[in-house]
Write a protein that binds this DNA or RNA. Structure first.
Lengths: 139, 139
DNA sequence: ATAATTGCAAACACTTTGCACCGTT
DNA sequence: AACGGTGCAAAGTGTTTGCAATTAT
């Protein structure tokens, strides 16, 4: 999606292009992964402040537009990231807490099995696998 | 684990066997899956009331003892179930909200891939796959 | 008896909502 | 002027904590 494409899309739907919305999207892009709180903090440090409730409202809007998605990597707050870069499975290490990503094909077997056996269509992009990374495995 | 085995285990660790703890465990067993709130409600209907904060404290304890585990099936509250029956992957349908379970072997390919490629040991029992079930797929 | 456990209410963290004000169109 | 968007503060959730009273051992 080009720089202006989503501006058009917003206007087409009767929404407005505001600095806050651009800032939030920038922050999500810059962070890669971020909770609403983190996104809000990121915006503060870059420029003018954006209220936390605006961040929530904006993320909801951006998600509705299909520009961001969220998953639940930890047990408290959701994590948002760009939808365009969301085509991956999340890995969360219980030891060090590190979050990583792997290509979605890793889950092909699972997806295929669920599809064939149950007719269940899995949304791999929302998939998060908890476990222990190489470093934390032994410890 | 036999009926009395965990009583012993509790006592051995200096914990006490209280009616509340038994009721909460019963409720988890009866519900299969349940949020703290649901578990609390279940307990109310069966017998004397147990305070919600006691439910939280008890679930934490039971989890520490390895008798229950929890996963995050929806975006609001965690879902607890018996650890003994936890050896399965959860499926959550975004359409009807139905929660189902499939045998963990379904994820073998994914698990093996992560292990071989990254040395990441996945905890399949905590795995939840979001998607659409057969019935909701088309709708 | 004594130390763990409970219930209750207050405190918390995260999220949503109502509303007056502001900025675009 | 009309309407969407924002900030702020208040209201909602779900969860945790301090503490006095209760209860298992």
């Amino acid at each position: 999606m080009t720089e202006t494409a989503w501006h058009e899309e917003l206007r087409a739907k009767g929404y407005r292009v505001t600095p806050q919305r651009q800032l939030v999207l920038e922050a999500v892009k810059a962070l890669g992964h971020g909770t609403p709180e983190e996104i809000c903090a990121k915006v503060q440090q870059t420029a003018r402040g954006v209220n936390i409730s605006t961040v929530y409202r904006t993320l909801e809007l951006l998600e509705e537009l299909g520009m961001v998605t969220h998953t639940h990597l930890n047990h408290v707050a959701p994590t948002y990231h760009l939808a365009a870069e969301a085509d991956h499975v999340h890995l969360v290490c219980r030891g060090c807490g590190e979050v990583s990503e792997v290509r979605p094909e890793m889950a092909d077997g699972l997806v295929k099995g669920l599809e064939e056996e149950l007719g269940f269509v899995a949304d791999v992009r929302h998939l998060t696998v908890f476990g222990r990374c190489r470093g934390c495995r032994v410890a």
